[in-house]
Design a protein around this nucleic acid. Structure first.
Length: 344
RNA sequence: CCGCCCUUAGCUCAGACUGGUAGAGCAGUCGACUGUAGAUCGACUUGCCCCCCGUUCAAAUCGGGGAGGGCGGACCA
């Protein structure tokens, strides 16, 4: 595979690359390392899938892929995860992530999993963090973390340490590329400012789009109807998709279309299959799409009705998460121990 | 260490002065209308009123104590 092909593979379905030229250089020089961090807080959902699915692309482009399960971050961010629950949540996150990697058509054993506290308490790391704290203003730190860390009238200090540590993680994991959802942009822009002062190259940043919620607003992890959970049964998935905001002909802020674009088609593409929409004869009969653009065009022209789109999408989404759901329901103790409140 | 303020529905809060076991908005649920959803109508649901003790026929409300959170002061050899 030549550099142009790899570049295309690495960047497809992303929202932004900072900077493409830098990425191209990295790829031309060898096999760069990329990392993504997940703070094990709430239950994982289909939004995580869009970021994880791309790890399969990275592996195919011969990147060195590391997934950080950032346990300490999960606690630093307004104690989203109680300290005692970190172990259980790390276990659950790793299992869920491996399931999603597999569902995306890659081999989880090709990925290096790292747990935050395994190195974040090291003397060298700690000392460097203090030095970073000394040289960074509160305002700069807040601005960096504002999209990630929970907002509050009385913010905790942990939320300010959070972006500093995340920046340091790039160095500690020796990552050439920092990958994450576009919400992480602020933090990694800070990293690009800070790291050159700390003997590490500016990371190339790669951002995945954040899926719109199903209810018409931003996807909210606390609003159950706005997202599909990995453990949702096929019936629940269908219901959620059916309840989704989806105005006819409107391709903006349409959660259903985004699911189709960023989840269904990439996975179908991997399997070399097309998207089949079953439609009653009275409305024109079945439709078959080879790529998202065709589908979007038909939806925009109102040739494709939301009800038909929803029926098909519900099935495909359910199908995509099926192996992950099975993997998690096979080991119910993982969720039960990670979220004792919800699973008693 | 001292002082002041806050804690009521999933969320934001009203009610407290003038005791009679609770309300609004948003969210949610269900119908109607749409070949989906939303919007719009119509209906509905929601509560250890932070905890304990006391006063009282009766306490979210008054008194005392406690917990959690916020703000300020003091201390700065």
């Amino acid at each position: 595979m030549d550099t142009a092909e790899r570049l295309d593979l690495v960047t497809r379905y992303t929202d932004e690359v900072v900077e493409t030229e830098e990425l191209e250089t990295l790829l031309a020089e060898g096999n760069p390392s990329v990392y993504i961090g997940y703070a094990p807080t709430g239950e994982m959902h289909i939004g995580h899938f869009t970021t994880i699915r791309k790890l399969a692309d990275f592996l195919r482009a011969d990147l060195d892929v590391t997934v950080l399960v950032a346990d300490l971050h999960a606690h630093l961010d307004d104690e989203k995860s109680p300290f005692e629950l970190l172990d259980a949540r790390v276990k659950y996150y790793q299992e869920a992530i491996e399931g999603m990697v597999e569902a995306a058509g890659a081999d989880p054993s090709d990925i290096t999993f790292v747990r935050g506290m395994d190195y974040q308490l090291d003397e060298e790391y700690s000392l460097e963090m203090y030095r970073m704290a000394a040289e960074t203003t509160i305002a700069r730190t807040q601005r960096a973390a504002s999209e990630v860390v929970r907002e509050s009238d009385s913010p905790n200090l942990g939320g300010l340490i959070y972006p500093l540590m995340q920046s340091l993680d790039v160095k500690a994991l020796d990552a050439d590329i920092a990958y994450g959802g576009i919400d992480q942009r602020g933090i990694y822009m800070l990293s690009r400012e800070l790291l050159p002062e700390h003997d590490h190259d500016k990371p190339v940043c790669l951002f995945a789009p954040l899926l719109a919620g199903l209810t018409g607003d931003k996807m909210s992890s606390s609003e159950d109807g706005s997202k599909v959970n990995l453990t949702d049964s096929p019936a629940v998935v269908r219901d959620k998709i059916d309840d989704a905001y989806c105005p006819m002909g409107d391709v903006e802020d349409n959660g259903v279309l985004e699911y189709v674009q960023y989840l269904v088609f990439p996975v179908l593409d991997e399997r070399d299959e097309s998207f089949v929409i079953e439609r009653p004869d009275e409305y024109g009969g079945d439709l078959v799409y080879e790529d998202y653009q065709q589908l979007e065009a038909d939806f925009e022209s109102e040739e494709l009705h939301p009800a038909d789109l929803k029926n098909a999408t519900g099935e495909y989404i359910s199908d995509v998460i099926d192996p992950v759901r099975e993997r998690l329901t096979d080991r119910p103790e993982l969720l039960a121990e990670a979220y004792p409140e919800s699973y008693e």
